[in-house]
Design a binder for these strands. Structure first.
Lengths: 381, 381
DNA sequence: TTGTAAGCGTTATCAC
DNA sequence: GTGATAACGCTTACAA
């Protein structure tokens, strides 16, 4: 700029821009104490005399001081933030887990950095890297399978992390969630006990999704115990929509004999299958049984309520938060990290129709996935 | 501790704990350049000669250096994070918006701090305060009504913010989203054009929810234009579940005459109402019309697909991100901030049944909420 | 209990 | 184009 511009304007502008944001030193000065004292009333009030504590509080309030997180993070080497990468938030279970996770973190003074990988391990790796650069104190991941670099980075930098939504006994000290495989095994066994011998499966795509893979495996586990398996043309993959569930179901019933039971990989596929069956006049459970995974309100409200596995996703989020915070505190958390899964029996499933290839087993015990007592009926609001 | 503890152990412990994390200075030393240069290759590579740039890159890679976000934030006075407070993530619309917001932010190098207020303005105020302390560069809020302290803090600290999900022409430079009021007015007019004169409403509770309030107001707007209103016993409030929708519907049809059209405040209430109607043998749209707000897949898959307003929640998130980033860049963003809303006409609605109090209007023009052309068919994946 | 002062790991302002 | 060096705002030994 040229000379001759009124100094007044110049000065005003500068002031407006700088506005010398109040800092801890200003509070200290106004309260007539040292910066250390101000810092203490914030971080260890019990170590400051009541008098000074109040003087500082007053000054802080008068100045409207807001401590600077970046500075604190730099000095303490802790950001007070936890990063989480979910595949998406469009699936209710992840959304609920994210919400519960954030609640747990906030309750303990932490904040949540959230991002979605869209089921892309590479994207996930990039996001985790971003998180680490941002200095997150811990990371929450979904699933047990990740880009090696993701894990390597976390381990090298010593950032505690936890894998969620697919509890695996093998990884028991890193993973929290339902045991997908066992849950599906139990659900399949339940159908076997009902006399079913011909199974269809509308599986969720296993593309970068080890939870879905575990669920498929669970079905296979149970079937092979009886020397059974799903015929290729009774096996269809879908992703996560009602319309895919419908299409898959049409595929499966293209030619007879139909399966007597169809197991779906998630709630929406199950809803689609049930709606399509209804529309075609197939009576559930008289003609066929259909079951799903995950319980959403819609499943119990449909004209034919759907039998399914209930997973407490909020519990997963809460426990994940609990776990990483415990690790941050230095404790190796003792609580078990498996979340209970429960079979919710509704009218979409029942005994295999007559004329089934083999005879029905005698007893149909009260179905309930075996799982530790913890988890259900937790202390969530 | 007492004397006599082996020095070796002590030293080892210290080493293990310190591990002298590599920093920018280490990279600089190894590359034989100054710290300034290292910083530059990160933030303004074009200002560094190719030679040095490569030397630095090599050193950085060899050391596995990860820049420290806190230090950078302190030095630049920018955290590169944006905070968002949603009422919850359990509602699909917020979840989708959050996901889109994060995508937009990540694309431009920002991170998202996410939290839920559970429709509690006080909680929101606390969370925003936490965000500000953490140094977020901008804040995304839902709705136009907030605790005064929330806004005051943001304004005093000069933190750009945006109000979402309830576009209000009055606040046009701060709010982005659908115009709930106008959208509902248009939807109601559509029903009026179909000849309906007796309306029921299953409204979403307006408790700390100005979006719901705006929607109710929109209905009233349109009705009063015709000198009509909803009778008290045809007005029920619910929150966000299918079962509440059912219960509300039962309430409304307790005694005749029934309304010929029932307007629901959200998708789940509408689904509940439709399911209950089906169950009671009420034929839609012959006996009655039911419409909702917000379009979720279920609505088109039910035996009676539901007429509703489609809101592009992902668009809301994307635009919100766009907006705050623009403000951060100093631009006053020029794009309009209203998101288009579209009436999706399905078979749950139709002409008023015969015997309606007044005669049907002549024309039923192609229904489409008037709204700017932008928004629909955006560039989302 | 309180104060002094040395960092924390970058960026940014200067000179060169 | 590159390098010293002083911030950035807070925490935390250590001293008093």
């Amino acid at each position: 700029m040229k000379e001759g511009i009124p100094v007044g304007v110049h000065a005003a502008k500068k002031n407006a821009r700088q506005e010398k944001a109040v800092g801890l030193r200003d509070v200290a000065r106004m309260a007539g104490v040292s910066t250390a004292t101000v810092s203490r009333v914030l971080n260890a009030p019990e170590r400051v005399s009541a008098t000074l504590r109040e003087r500082v509080a007053a000054a802080s309030a008068r100045l409207g001081w807001v401590p600077d997180g970046a500075a604190r993070a730099l000095a303490t080497r802790r950001s007070g933030a936890v990063g989480a990468v979910f595949p998406t938030l469009s699936h209710g279970d992840f959304a609920r887990a994210a919400e519960a996770l954030q609640g747990e973190l906030t309750k303990r003074g932490y904040a949540l950095l959230l991002a979605c990988s869209h089921y892309d391990p590479l994207q996930e790796q990039l996001l985790v890297r971003q998180f680490v650069e941002r200095g997150v104190d811990a990371v929450v991941l979904v699933g047990n399978v990740h880009d090696p670099r993701t894990i390597e980075l976390l381990e090298r930098r010593n950032v505690p992390y936890v894998k969620t939504f697919n509890y695996d006994p093998e990884w028991r000290h890193h993973s929290v969630g339902p045991d997908n495989r066992r849950a599906m095994r139990d659900l399949t066994r339940y159908l076997l006990r009902l006399g079913h011998r011909r199974f269809g499966m509308i599986a969720q795509s296993v593309d970068h999704n080890d939870r879905a893979a575990a669920r498929q495996q669970g079905v296979r586990d149970a079937l092979s115990e009886e020397g059974l398996s799903v015929r290729p043309h009774h096996f269809v993959e879908g992703r996560w929509s009602i319309s895919e569930g419908r299409a898959a179901f049409r595929q499966i019933i293209k030619k007879k004999p139909w399966p007597t039971a169809v197991i779906c990989g998630n709630a929406y596929l199950a809803i689609g299958a049930v709606l399509e069956a209804m529309q075609r006049g197939i009576k559930l459970p008289r003609d066929m049984s259909i079951v799903g995974y995950d319980d959403i309100e819609m499943m119990q409200e449909l004209p034919v309520p759907i039998t399914t596995l209930r997973v407490r996703s909020d519990e997963v989020g809460r426990l994940a938060g609990d776990y990483v915070l415990a690790r941050l505190g230095g404790h190796q958390p003792s609580t078990d990290l498996e979340c209970a899964v429960e079979i919710i029996e509704r009218s979409s499933s029942g005994p295999a129709p007559r004329g089934s290839p083999r005879k029905v087993l005698a007893s149909v015990p009260k179905a309930k996935a075996s799982a530790p007592d913890r988890g259900v009926g937790g202390r969530d609001r």
